[in-house]
Design a binder for these strands. Sequence first.
RNA 1: GGAGGUGUCGCCUAGUGGCCUAUGGCGCCCGCCUGCUAAGCGGGUUGAGGGUUACCCCCUCUCGCGGGUUCAAAUCCCGCCACCUCCGCCA
Length: 426
Amino acid sequence: MIDPKVLRDDPDRIRAAQAKRGLSADVVDDALAADGRRRSAIVEFERLRGEQKTLGRQIATASGEEKQALLERTRRLSAEVKEAEAAQSQAEETYRALVMTIPNPAAEEAPAGGEDDYVVLEHVGKPRDFEAEGFEPRDHVELGRLLGAIDIDRGAKVSGARFYYLTGVGADLELALVSMAMDQARRSGFTTMIPPTLVKPRAMEGTGFLGQAADDVYRVEGEDMYLVGTSEVPLAAYHSDEIMEAESLPRRYAAFSPCFRKEAGSYGKDTRGIIRVHWFDKVEMFSYTTLDDAAAEHQRLLGWEKEWLEKLELAYRVIDTAAGDLGLSAQRKFDCEAWIPTQGRYRELTSTSNCTDFQTRRLDIRGRFPDGVRPIATLNGTLVAIPRTIVAILETHQQTDGSVRVPTALQPYLQGRELLEPASSR
RNA sequence: GGAGGUGUCGCCUAGUGGCCUAUGGCGCCCGCCUGCUAAGCGGGUUGAGGGUUACCCCCUCUCGCGGGUUCAAAUCCCGCCACCUCCGCCA
C-alpha cells in the first residue's frame, strides 16, 4: 500500500507515478474523494460516540426521573451511533479498496514505459559461439532426454501441459543446485527456511498477488487458501503484525519452496520444454531492512544473484525493468537474464525487487526505532529457479556428443562429477 | 473429525455490566539519592486513526477476530480463529 499521507499531501506525485507506469490517474482522484468521505465519517462517528460515553457516565450515577430522561435520550443516540459506525467502516472499506489498487510508485531511476522499455545495465560473460565451434547446439528438451534428466512426456501424461519430471541426473541436478544455493545464502548471512506454500488470503493480498495478478494464482477449491507462486509470500507474511527491533535489521531469509503458477495469458508462449511451467522449485532470498538501507540492500541482493550465475559459468545480462513492468509491489526491479543458446536470446533466470514499504504497510510490519515506530522495507530476489537454471546449464555447457560439462563450483554437490553423460553411452 | 480447556500491554497477572480513563509485578526508559555498583524513591512505558497541526493538547478505537444483547460490554450471548489436553485418523 502506498503511503496515505503522500496521497493526501502530494497527490501529484502519485499521479506522475501512475503516468510513469502507463496507468490512469483517475484512481488517485477517486481515492482522494473517498479519503474525504472517510474522514468526515470518522468525525461524525466520534462526535456521537463521545456524547454517548459522556451520557453513559451520567446515567451510572443518576437516579429517578433524571435517569429516566437520560435513558430516553441515549436510546435514540444508541441507534445513531450504530449507524454512524457502520457508515464509517463502509467509508473506510471503500477508501482502502481504492488505495490498495494503486501500485508502488517506481523509483526515480527506474526507466519509464512498459515491458520493452527496460535498460540493459551490463553484460557479464560472452555467449558461447557454437558456430565457431562448428556444431549445432541441442536444446534442453533433447539434452534432457539424452541424459535421462527431464521427462516431459510423462509429466504431461500425469499432470498435463507445462509439467515435467526431473529424473535421475536431472533430479540430482536440482538437489545439487538447491544445496549449493542454500550454502551460498547461509554464508552470506541468510537464515535458511522451508516455508508453507499454502497460505491464507491475507498473505497473498499483503504481498500484492491478489489484485490484477490473481489470475495467475491457484486457489484451493472449497477452502480460503492459495498456492503461492513464490516463497516471497510466506516470507513477507512471516513477520506480519509485528514490530521489529531496528537493530535486528537487516533480517535475511533464504527459502526453498515449490512455486505454483497458472500461467494464464501465456498460452502459446514457451510451450516447448521447461522454460515456463505450472510448478517449479526455487530458492528465494528475502530481506527486511530500513527504508534508508533498501536501495543498498537491493544492490546486495543483485550482487548475490550475480555471484551465483558466475559460479554456474553462465553468460548473462542485467536489466533495469521499466516502471510498467514492475508488478504492483516493486519500486524497482533488476532481472538477470542468461543466454539461452538455442533461443538465441537472454531469458530471465533471476529477478530482484525493492518493495520499499509497500508490503509492510499491507501486512502491518513496522520497525521500532529510537525515535518511534516507523515503516520498514522488504526486498526479494531469486537465487535459483530450478527449471530455467537447468535449461541454461544444459544448453550452455553441452558438448558435441550430448554430454554436459558440470561447472566447477557445482561439482562438489554432484558427487564430484565433472561430466553428465547421455544415458545410452553409460 | 469429536470432547473439554485457554486467549488481557514485550512477558506474567488482577478484573463476573457503569467507580475500567484496565490492576499489580518483571523488563525497559528518564530522573533523584548515591565513593562505584546494587538496593531504594519518583515518573514514564500497546498500537492505530481523527481533530489540530512546529509543539502541546483533545477525542475515538484497540482486552484473539467478527457479530449480537444493553442507555452502557474485557465482563453476558452467538459464530470463527489460534493454542493446550484427550479421543479418532495419519507420514
